[in-house]
Design a protein around this nucleic acid. Structure first.
Length: 628
RNA sequence: GGGCCUAUAGCUCAGCAUGGAUAGAGUGUUGGACUUCUAAUCCAAUGGUCAAGGGAUCGAAGCCCUUUGGGCCCA
């Protein structure tokens, strides 16, 4: 058990006390205390003030008095603070032993929210016509981190990437290659996805703008794409798969992995839409409009003042939301699976198989990538559309929150960075645009970070061999990028600035990784494996107790993060852990102490910290080099 | 015109869900700490009418209403 043990003990005893005082059950809080106010605090007396017509302080006093007669194993004493808070002081000798010995277990930090149920997390979902830019990276890292957290919370997680390989953006690069004569091989070794995005896509779009007559070519290509057997569609398939390979390379480099790639073209050709269309009509969720501006269309009624949403136009064609509905229903496992599955030709990592949908019925692999719940990570510009899907899925599947849209605000470019890309924004931030070529690619940011961290590492360790330097630089760069993408709240916009994003000090991944490296070095130099059989009363400095407390809060943080689908909770926790370790590091010497018992106790704490931080950083997909 | 998000220190952000104690970090600026387990570190100083106004409450950064600035979506 962890710090949760003492919280539970206090809560139970408080309930007994309230029962003795014949007070109705109130839902009071029992939380880790703010520094300087003991170890645990409760607001119970504030909540009772009205009912008992007494001051919070008087109530706290009488509860505290009764509390002292309860059987307390982890609490030394309780105290009624003048403010009215009830504060508790832990018996650290016992609590430290509980927390530290627990931290050595593989299951440390686990919390059973999912009960082994299956949940789908879909993220990335970028058109396969360009390289990933820094805005896509926010989506990808949020999705990957959330899926790691949910796994820790005992969900069985299926990670999907939806490949939109049949839309307008794909048509555009096909036009570029087929009609504007772009070579299929990128110049001087440029990555294919970058070539398609930077050159073919952007320049093809420019040509449309100059010559409106080209629009008909574009429409014809789009039409050809719909027929899967057309020569155009086969060509598009070849191109988009090459781009996809480039995108996946970027993701894998950032330690982001998937379970299955779902191709939009397969969804369209599978006939899923016809099935769901019939269902929607049966359930009365779709209505046929007889008059008004949507006459002849099938619509979903808007909520309140909202406009009705057209699903099928009067000419019988489905709008693009129509693709999302059957797909969402499929993800929730509510439709018979029309797909077959085959392995993706490239291996993404040693322990994670990657599959892809196929309509080739010769592939008989039996797979199920659906879930009881679905989390779809898409930026909040899609909120309106996602709200409709959420509503419909709620009607289909009677599980509350079965379909969750995890939205986040987008990444914009700072005016300085926009300027380096040739756009003067007059001091304002700028929205990225793949079409206009206004973006910063993920690969280029990674490359810059790696150059800088390599330089730093060489400066610190001139003696180190190149392979190790490269490895450290890689892990620190990936960590930095990942941490930057999730350390703030999802509903806060990120204004990306090339210069500022390269900072490696302060609230960054390297700061946290550095604390890990320090702990590693202490243990390495000690040359011993610390024994857990130590006298925990020796760990009595404030900095030591703080660190132990933070270690003990791990599973509670995982619970919060999973419940709220909030990756930043874990980011902040890792930072807190590192801060308390660095503070301990300054104040308490570990090695070469005269007192062997004390030395072992501290080594034990260092080891416990190291293990916990590694587990927590693993949830963020941040690696932990032993030296840096 | 309708909807969503946002406003806290010079700058970037925690805290808000579930109202209570002294509003916290980083960064910046200024000063200090490496013959001591790695200074990508630590310590100190500096810096806040929590956008404005109103309301309910014993009590509001947090809840409700209005207004304003910024971003986005739909029309």
């Amino acid at each position: 058990m962890t710090f949760k043990s003492i919280l539970d003990e206090i809560e139970n005893n408080l309930k007994k006390v309230l029962n003795d005082m014949s007070i109705d059950d109130v839902s009071f809080s029992v939380e880790p205390a703010k520094p300087g106010f003991g170890d645990v605090s409760s607001n119970v007396s504030f909540l009772l003030a009205k009912q008992l017509k007494k001051s919070p302080q008087d109530i706290a006093k009488s509860i505290s008095e009764r509390f002292s007669h309860c059987t307390n194993t982890l609490v030394l004493k309780s105290e009624a603070h003048a403010s009215g808070y009830l504060n508790f002081f832990a018996d650290w000798k016992k609590l430290s032993q509980l927390i530290l010995s627990e931290s050595y277990l593989d299951t440390f930090g686990d919390i059973d929210l999912g009960k082994g149920t299956t949940i789908v997390v879909e993220h990335t979902s970028v058109n396969p016509n360009k390289a990933l830019h820094i805005g896509h990276i926010r989506n990808i890292i949020i999705g990957d981190t959330v899926s790691r957290i949910l796994k820790k919370a005992n969900y069985n997680v299926n990670v999907l990437n939806y490949i939109d390989d049949s839309g307008l953006q794909v048509a555009d690069i096909v036009v570029g290659f087929k009609h504007f004569g772009y070579d299929q091989e990128p110049p001087n070794g440029k990555k294919f996805d970058h070539y398609c995005g930077d050159d073919v896509y952007v320049k093809t779009t420019e040509k449309y703008e100059k010559d409106a007559g080209l629009e008909s070519i574009r429409k014809n290509v789009l039409k050809d794409l719909e027929d899967g057997n057309s020569e155009t569609a086969m060509f598009a398939d070849k191109i988009t798969r090459r781009v996809l390979a480039g995108q996946l390379e970027t993701c894998w480099n950032l330690d982001v992995f998937y379970d299955c790639l779902n191709f939009e073209s397969h969804i369209i050709r599978s006939g899923l839409w016809d099935k769901i269309f019939a269902n929607l009509k049966d359930m009365g969720l779709l209505e046929f409009e007889n008059d008004g501006k949507n006459a002849g269309c099938w619509v979903i009624r808007g909520d309140g003042k909202e406009e009705d949403k057209v699903i099928v136009r009067s000419n019988g064609t489905a709008t693009y939301i129509a693709k999302d509905i059957p797909y969402a229903a499929w993800k929730l496992g509510m439709l018979e699976d029309p797909f077959c599955y085959e392995r993706y030709p490239e291996v993404q990592s040693s322990d994670r198989d990657l599959w892809q949908t196929t309509l080739d019925s010769a592939c008989t692999a039996s797979k199920n990538f659906t879930g009881d719940k679905v989390v779809t990570v898409i930026d909040s510009r899609q909120a309106r559309l996602q709200k409709i899907i959420t509503y419909l899925m709620g009607r289909f599947k009677s599980v509350p929150d079965a379909y969750v849209h995890l939205g986040y605000e987008s990444v914009t470019l700072s005016s300085e960075t926009a300027k380096t890309l040739g756009l003067d924004t007059d001091g304002k931030q700028a929205q990225m645009s793949g079409r206009k070529g206004l973006y910063v690619s993920a690969d280029s940011v990674y490359d810059m970070l790696r150059e800088k961290t390599k330089e730093e590492t060489v400066k610190r360790h001139p003696e180190m061999d190149v392979a190790e330097t490269e490895k450290i630089a890689h892990h620190v760069s990936v960590g930095t990028l990942r941490y930057e993408m999730i350390k703030q709240d999802l509903d806060k916009m990120i204004t990306f600035d090339l210069t500022k994003s390269l900072s490696l000090e302060g609230d960054t991944a390297p700061y946290i990784q550095y604390s890990y490296a320090r702990a590693s070095r202490i243990l390495e130099k000690s040359g011993k494996v610390p024994s857990i059989d130590v006298d925990f009363s020796l760990l009595c400095e404030n900095s030591e107790l703080d660190l132990i407390k933070n270690i003990g809060l791990f599973n509670l943080q995982v619970r919060d993060a999973a419940n709220n689908l909030s990756p930043k909770v874990i980011a902040r926790y890792c930072h807190e852990l590192a801060v308390s370790f660095n503070s301990f590091y300054e104040k308490s010497k570990v090695l070469n102490l005269d007192d062997a018992c004390l030395e072992n106790s501290r080594l034990c704490l260092v080891n416990s910290f190291k293990i916990t931080l590694k587990k927590a950083l693993d949830l963020l997909g941040v690696k932990t080099p032993d030296r840096m």
